[in-house]
């Protein structure tokens, strides 16, 4: 097997103006519209978007299963269109739907994979032992996959994707269809892999919590376009910080307090609703004492204080005007996304 002449300076993934359209009769469906991305080695990057946003299409093009209509992409320095075999040698893929032969045992699954990737006998057996330990399936290695639980199957697939030591690991909705506990375990496992094996991970998800917990950088993808691409903390910071909600005794008091608080320069927005006053500030936890002191100076009695730090969900809402539910379907906004100062 020719080993990768991979330069440290090479980005793991470069996507330039990528476009994919499907012709359906006279209509053209645009699956990807002018996507550009640059991913450094060792990063965990999330593609976040609702079902049908183009996430899987992008992954399928990057792992050479689909041809782009226009634009170009390189993975580990190789062009996905002209150097398909080199790209495939350097990537591991875990597909959205399971891709296992459930009549084979765990170890047979891994051996077949090693043979498909041309590992020599010694490397194969060493890597298989390592991987089985890493994914915690050493004890069930001789059981047929049919007898594995959903989580075990997922772990086997992720382990298989790592077997040939890829530069980039693609995970298409890695925790979809798993129960909460297995989902959490799988996330921790992906994190561990990224840290220990120094593999670049590109994962697609519609789960905000997952993207926030796992990813160094998140690309929000909507209608085939990347709307925004940055670290989760930077994305959240762009929203103008935290929201402190002060609850007072009645709505008149709330309005009076809102006017008082709006005069602070560090308050970016104030919004009274009923007995609540929502105050947007940076580093909310440090501002709560000042806000409460100001209220008592004006003889407004505060009955409760709540601090909300912005979630990726509010970021998504801000950039797309929609939220996505657990199944990945889009839902209309239920409340105004951001409170702005008058």
């Amino acid at each position: 097997m020719a080993h990768r002449p991979f330069l440290e300076s090479d980005a793991a993934l470069v996507v330039n103006g990528l476009r994919k359209t499907y012709a359906q009769g006279d209509d053209t469906t645009v699956a990807l519209d002018d996507i550009s991305l640059h991913v450094e080695r060792g990063d965990v990057v999330g593609l976040l978007g609702p079902n049908g946003a183009g996430k899987s299409t992008l992954v399928n093009i990057l792992c050479t299963l689909l041809q782009p209509t226009a634009g170009s992409a390189t993975v580990a320095g190789y062009d996905v269109e002209t150097e398909g075999a080199d790209v495939r040698r350097n990537i591991g893929v875990v597909f959205q739907e399971p891709a296992l032969d459930d009549q084979l045992t765990g170890i047979e699954t891994l051996r077949l994979h090693a043979r498909l990737y041309g590992l020599d006998r010694q490397t194969r057996e060493e890597r298989i032992t390592e991987i089985l330990d890493l994914v915690g399936l050493a004890e069930v290695r001789d059981q047929v996959v049919e007898q594995y639980s959903g989580g075990m199957k997922r772990r086997l697939e992720i382990g298989r994707g790592m077997l040939h030591d890829p530069v980039v690991l693609f995970l298409d909705e890695p925790t979809l269809g798993l129960d909460a506990q297995t989902r959490q375990a799988t996330r921790e496992y992906i994190q561990q892999l990224n840290e220990e094996a120094d593999v670049t991970v590109l994962l697609t998800t519609h789960n905000m919590v997952e993207a926030d917990a796992l990813c160094d950088r998140v690309a929000i993808i909507d209608h085939g376009e990347i709307v925004v691409f940055d670290s989760p903390s930077a994305l959240k910071a762009q929203l103008g910080g935290d929201i402190v909600t002060l609850t007072v005794t009645d709505s008149e008091e709330a309005t009076r307090l809102a006017e008082l608080l709006a005069s602070y320069s560090w308050v970016t927005a104030v919004h009274p609703t009923g007995r609540d006053v929502q105050v947007s500030v940076a580093r909310g936890q440090t501002r709560i004492p000042a806000l409460v002191t100001r209220a008592s100076e004006a003889s407004v009695s505060v009955t409760s204080v709540d601090l909300q730090t912005p979630s990726l969900e509010s970021v998504f809402l801000t950039h797309t005007g929609r939220t996505i539910d657990d199944t990945g379907a889009e839902t209309a906004p239920t409340r105004p996304p951001v409170v702005t100062k008058q």
């Binding site: 050479t64 495939r88 040698r89 990537i91 994979h113 990737y117 041309g118």
Partner: peptide, 17 residues
């Protein structure tokens, strides 16, 4: 049936002609 259960993708995404 490999195609239906998705296993065909595992084979076709390998660096094999």
């Amino acid at each position: 049936s490999d195609r239906e259960v998705g296993f065909l993708k595992e084979i076709l995404v390998a660096p094999v002609s």
